[in-house]
């Protein structure tokens, strides 16, 4: 106690210059990180600022960075040129359906891989894992042909079905299932549960953090998906938000930046807002994708 008090008063007694040096040695990182953070944030800041400018300001080299007057008119203008409500609904439907379907398929498959013994287990597991290496970008061409044969082009299911099985999710959940002590499933068997009962009453409640982490990653991925929905949709009734935004850019042919940036703000804000609110959860989820 006494020592601590002495130390504090000693610090106080130090000359100003060494107090500054001390403070600097503790916080020098901020001097490097703060400009970097501003650099990283600048595109987003630019989006929002531009969405509040007038068309003239954008092209005026003397106009400065900030809008002269906050011009909110770009937002209603954007909403009036494209059916953003429909896009939003489609995005929700597609992303939600993918998530639900994935949760079902990966839960069942992960349980089999984690707790059951069967022939060809290793081979099948490798095939599940290998799927990670073949994302839609690598196989979109033949998948497009297949969906065309199924007559699914320009429907919502076309944007869902290629993503129903997830090797990555199966792997994540299998790892989590294997962490559950086997005595718990023994206890559940004595309590009258079969395999599905154990899965539902014991495993799923216990791996909730993993399910949430996977859910977040899946939603972020498919909410933002561009290429595949672009290829399989050709009418507004089934388009998702990113496609709508891309279309807006095309129709405005790059000239109407204010309206485009208002649209961009609208499209990126739902996810960013959720991210800001549940920041910790999001960060944790992505943080642990790499650590088993």
């Amino acid at each position: 106690m006494d020592n601590a008090v002495n130390m504090v008063s000693a610090t106080r007694a130090l000359p100003l210059s060494s107090r500054v040096a001390r403070w600097f040695s503790k916080s020098w990182k901020h001097f490097i990180l703060t400009p970097l953070v501003l650099l990283w944030l600048s595109p987003m800041i630019w989006i929002v600022l531009t969405s509040l400018k007038t068309k003239v300001e954008v092209f005026d080299p003397d106009a400065g960075i900030l809008p002269a007057v906050l011009n909110f008119g770009n937002y209603p203008a954007t909403l009036s040129v494209a059916p953003f409500g429909t896009y939003l609904l489609n995005s929700v439907l597609v992303t939600g359906s993918i998530l639900i379907a994935q949760l079902v398929t990966i839960t069942l498959a992960a349980y089999a891989f984690a707790r059951l013994e069967f022939p060809l287990k290793r081979l099948l597991f490798s095939l599940f894992l290998l799927q990670v290496m073949f994302p839609i970008y690598a196989i979109f061409l033949t998948n497009f042909v297949t969906l065309r044969e199924f007559g699914l082009i320009n429907t919502l299911p076309a944007m869902i079905v290629p993503f129903v099985a997830s090797g990555y999710g199966t792997f994540m959940l299998r790892q989590a299932f294997r962490q559950v002590p086997s005595e718990l499933s023994d206890a559940a068997r004595l309590d009258g549960c079969g395999h599905l009962g154990i899965l539902w009453h014991v495993y799923l409640p216990l791996v909730q953090p993993t399910l949430i982490a996977f859910g977040i990653i899946s939603v972020v991925t498919h909410w933002n998906d561009y290429m595949w929905p672009l290829l399989v949709t050709n009418s507004d009734s089934v388009r998702t938000l990113p496609i709508g935004l891309g279309l807006l850019a095309k129709s405005d042919s790059g000239a109407d930046w204010t309206r485009l940036m208002a649209g961009t703000t609208l499209v990126v804000s739902p996810l960013l807002l959720v991210f800001v609110i549940f920041q910790r959860r999001f960060i944790d989820s992505f943080m642990h994708t790499g650590v088993k």
């Binding site: 718990l184 023994d186 206890a187 559940a188 068997r189 004595l190």
Partner: peptide, 18 residues
Amino acid sequence: PQKRDIAMVFQSYALYPH
């Protein structure tokens, strides 16, 4: 197991954490 009319206490207790 559930048809045998037995109950078991495990080494790690195996209580359901949730």
